[in-house]
Design a binder for these strands. Structure first.
Lengths: 139, 139
DNA sequence: CTGCTTGCAAACTGTTTGCATGATC
DNA sequence: GATCATGCAAACAGTTTGCAAGCAG
């Protein structure tokens, strides 16, 4: 789907800034933080405030979703609807998606056992480790 | 283990601030953020800078560990060495520990399949949902 | 008494808000 | 043309750094 279509589908006005932000995110092809986005040349004409406002808008529209890859900074990625997770290099931040996840069955078990929770609608699951490159560089 | 013993065991000098911070964290009995800690009366004599410095020190000493319970803010909890995770209420933040986790077997599978990672040393896994209280209040 | 720890001031990063101007539908 | 989006300035929250004075070992 094109950036413009994605906006229309979500009843958002199609503006120059929004197109630029969305296209940049699509090209980036991996999770990003707003400060990372701000440093990409493509969007450097767009005011940071506009970027923050639209990222937040896209998140409530479920065009983007929030991740917790590193505590303290919010990462975002396109919300494809297909649940997946990540393995992230502690040293350089290199990252790959992973598609294995047992959250469904664990959630059911937890709900059965907990007296205080009635539903689960989200989960986080990320692996952190050392990538080949950083391993080589450390040797 | 007492706060003082914990410090000694980690070769850290036993100071008034460190004792106060550790005791407060121990009494708190659940994950906390630094801003939360700053608002607790017990430690309000201690300079925020000292708190930040010691929390960070305790983390590298593995007295505390970092969690991602909410994107954008770092949560910490005492590192007991026993891996566990949490289920967190989206609305009020109420939280319970959970002890089920499949990360071990998934990690092995991911390592076998990935060409770019050579080890995994950490993972995050948290469930988010709605607790009984908030469910009742919304009705 | 030496070196680590603390407090204070100040800088810095990331993010949000208010308001006037400009663009979309 | 009405409403929503943007840019700019400024505020705000969270966190870090530098330096002089204080304290633990």
């Amino acid at each position: 789907m094109t950036a413009a279509d994605l906006l229309k589908k979500n009843n958002l006005k199609v503006t120059k800034s929004r197109l630029l932000i969305l296209k940049t995110v699509m090209d980036f092809r991996k999770p990003f933080t707003v400060p990372e986005l701000l440093s990409i040349e493509n969007v450097q004409g767009v005011d940071p405030v506009t970027i923050y406002r639209n990222i937040s808008l896209f998140t409530t529209s479920k065009i983007l979703k929030e991740l917790s890859l590193r505590t303290g900074v919010i990462h975002y990625e396109l919300d494809t609807g297909h649940t997946h997770h990540h393995i992230v290099c502690n040293t350089c931040g290199y990252l790959e998606p992973i598609f294995t996840c047992e959250a469904q069955s664990i959630s059911e078990k937890v709900l059965r056992e907990s007296k205080h929770f009635i539903s689960i609608n989200k989960h986080s699951f990320e692996l952190f480790g050392l990538c080949m490159n950083c391993y080589e560089n450390k040797k």
